[in-house]
């Protein structure tokens, strides 16, 4: 029994449709690209890994894996006892550190002795910008009490020289 193959001759409409399909053409530079690829494939040797490559990498990986395991062991202690021991240890160390730090870093306590007060004279500035010491109460003396008689006996402070108006003063000429 022969297999029946569809032929385009039996379907002329299909043949027309196929004719209407545009023909795909090679792009510009197609041949050059083929030549280039041929050049690269034929004349460029394939570099290979040297001998011992795998062992070198594996020894590197083993080292990394052992350090990773050590780190993991340090990072994740599983038993609660270990956690408690670590906590207690940390608390002790922290306490010691805090105590020594507070002891060393705290300021030294000194008993403060205030200096003996010094009696300074009270100074009141005057208008003339000359500072005059104000006498203390002890230094202030009571004004002398005069009797009326003493007051009469007091010599006059008026000038004794008589000056006559219109007469030239001889003292001035001298």
């Amino acid at each position: 029994m022969s297999e029946h193959k569809p032929d385009n001759h039996e379907h002329p409409e299909l043949r027309d449709i196929q004719r209407q399909l545009p023909r795909a053409t090679a792009p510009i530079g197609f041949e050059e690209t083929v030549l280039l690829r041929r050049l690269l494939q034929e004349h460029l040797p394939h570099a290979t890994a040297p001998e011992g490559f795998e062992e070198e990498v594996l020894s590197c990986l083993r080292k990394e894996e052992s350090s990773r395991r050590r780190l993991r062991r340090l990072r994740l202690p599983k038993s609660p006892r270990t956690w408690i021991a670590i906590g207690v240890g940390a608390a002790i160390v922290g306490g010691i550190a805090y105590y020594s730090a507070s002891k060393l870093a705290s300021p030294q306590i000194e008993h403060y002795q205030p200096p003996t007060p010094q009696v300074l004279p009270l100074v009141i500035p005057t208008d003339s910008a000359i500072e005059e010491p104000v006498p203390t109460r002890r230094q202030q003396q009571a004004p002398p009490v005069r009797t009326p008689r003493e007051t009469l006996k007091q010599q006059s402070t008026a000038p004794t020289k008589r000056v006559t108006p219109g007469v030239p003063d001889h003292d001035d000429e001298e």
Binding site: H46, A47, T48, A49, F53, E54, V57
Partner: peptide, 9 residues
């Protein structure tokens, strides 16, 4: 490594 080492190098 057996599969890819040469290609990567």
């Amino acid at each position: 490594m057996r599969v890819y080492k040469d290609d990567l190098v």
